[in-house]
């Protein structure tokens, strides 16, 4: 029964995406071209990676607001490890990702060990991690990376932006985990009723700890990709990205109360937002108009699918 309603929202959203794509390609002939669409994929990878992990987190009824700060911290550390400590760049990036993952683990530990509600815990670490990024960087940027490093953020593999491969792989793996494994079912169970799942012997704490760690990892990888895309590091990178990711996730039909949501929905939501941002801009709508429209679409899409569902089940 849950499955049906899930499918409904995603079908609806996919239809909406198709309509939007058609309308926008009539508005501008430069919209529906392979190169433009691939380029949009490049621009949405960082949010996409974070949104995939966020889907799991929100499906358990949690939330992670610190992802933007983890992204910034990882970006700064990549530069600092490489330039100031003199690590080889690949090692520096890996070490930075490790720290970002650790930051996610710390979130999970605070949430599970101390029973701090996720929103409060990650609000606190949002300030803390951003602060660490600022302190460590001393407001200095690290620039001048070797050319090969830009392959990740600016290059292509087989004609497709490098990071889009990463996003695609992450999306596929994540949807398999969420839909077909015992672990994925645990995620839904926690989101539907945490107390009941604890009593039925599911490893609630371990699962949550792993999820927040994974969320930190995703944000950290996004951070390194971001550095490679913009070729510099700044401590304010990724500010506000948490709201963009959450928007994609809830637009994709994941319930903020937990218990339902799919990776496919999140990806469709993400594509819809990106298509609107890009297509409207090409059609001559200014940035502030675009933000307004995305806000309206978010409310209306959830409203429509709510009405749709209710009339279907009753």
């Amino acid at each position: 029964m849950n499955w049906k309603s899930l499918l409904r929202h995603e079908t609806f959203l996919a239809l909406l995406l198709v309509v939007v794509l058609i309308v926008l390609s009539f508005q501008s002939d430069r919209f529906f071209t392979v190169s433009n669409l691939l380029n949009q994929g490049r621009l949405m990878t960082e949010i996409g990676l974070i949104a995939i992990a966020m889907t799991f987190v929100i499906a358990t009824g949690g939330i992670d607001l610190s992802v933007g700060s983890i992204l910034g911290l990882t970006a700064i550390l990549t530069g600092v490890f490489w330039q100031n400590i003199g690590m080889p760049l690949p090692l520096a990036a890996i070490a930075a990702i490790a720290v970002g993952t650790l930051a996610g683990f710390a979130n999970g530990a605070i949430i599970t060990r101390f029973n701090v509600p996720p929103l409060i815990a990650t609000l606190a670490t949002l300030a803390l991690y951003r602060g660490l990024a600022e302190g460590i960087s001393q407001a200095r940027s690290v620039r001048g990376y070797p050319d090969w490093f830009y392959v990740l953020g600016q290059g292509e593999v087989l004609g497709v932006p490098t990071q889009l491969w990463i996003l695609a792989a992450a999306a596929i793996i994540a949807s398999i985990i969420l839909a077909y494994t015992r672990w994925g079912r645990t995620v839904y169970a926690i989101g539907s009723n945490e107390v009941a799942s604890r009593f039925s012997g599911l490893s609630v704490e371990k699962t949550k700890l792993a999820l927040y760690t994974a969320s930190g990892f995703a944000a950290a990888v996004a951070g390194v990709i971001f550095v490679s895309r913009v070729s510099t590091t700044r401590s304010d990178m990724g500010t506000g990205i948490e709201l963009d990711a959450i928007t994609a996730v809830v637009l994709g039909g994941t319930s903020i109360f937990g218990g339902r949501g799919t990776i496919a929905g999140t990806m469709i939501g993400l594509c819809l937002i990106q298509a609107l941002k890009n297509g409207l801009s090409l059609a001559g709508v200014k940035g502030d108009g675009t933000i307004m429209l995305i806000g309206a679409v978010l409310i209306l899409a959830i409203l429509a699918s709510n009405l749709f569902e209710r009339s279907g089940t009753r």
């Binding site: 928007t247 809830v250 675009t290 933000i291 307004m292 806000g295 978010l298 409310i299």
Partner: peptide, 17 residues
């Protein structure tokens, strides 16, 4: 509609507006 969804939308609408 969950309040976070409505207010995320309202945030965009008011900021852009």
């Amino acid at each position: 509609i969950p309040s976070i969804v409505v207010t995320l939308g309202a945030l965009s609408i008011m900021r852009g507006g």
